[in-house]
């Protein structure tokens, strides 16, 4: 099974997808429309690029700081959370899902994901 299918099977995950670092492709499953999934891919890709570049800048100024290269990021909202690791994103209903479980699962599954295309 793909990581997206695995994620969607987890409690609280309402949508999940993957985007290409180049920005030309995305795929998804869940409650989003195609257009909203496209937008989510653009947003997630932009933030992933940003945090990686920020990490790179921090690394240049303070080598071996433990943050670079970034594995991912999480935005925790009032009732929904967006969790992104490597080029995989997922949207979680806070009332039904465990962010710790999902971050742990994604981090574990994507540990060796290549980041050189970022």
């Amino acid at each position: 099974m793909s990581i997206v299918t695995d994620l969607l099977a987890r409690p609280g995950v309402i949508a999940a997808g993957e985007y290409a670092y180049r920005g030309d492709r995305f795929s998804y499953r869940g409650v989003l429309t195609e257009e909203h999934a496209r937008m989510a891919s653009i947003i997630c890709r932009a933030t992933t690029m940003s945090v990686n570049m920020e990490g790179g800048m921090l690394e240049a100024l303070r080598p071996r700081n433990g943050l670079h290269p970034a594995r991912g990021w999480v935005v925790y909202g009032p009732s929904h959370t967006v969790c992104v690791m490597a080029n995989v994103f997922c949207m979680i209903d806070n009332a039904k899902g465990s962010i710790n479980d999902i971050v742990r699962f994604m981090r574990g599954t994507l540990t060796h994901a290549s980041t050189h295309l970022i």
Binding site: I42, I43, R45, A46, M49, S50, M53, G56, M57, A60
Partner: peptide, 17 residues
């Protein structure tokens, strides 16, 4: 050069959004 490259991409990503 590296800073300008990164800064440009970040600004572009934010402008796109």
């Amino acid at each position: 050069a590296r800073f300008a490259h990164d800064y440009r991409r970040m600004a572009q990503g934010n402008a796109d959004q």
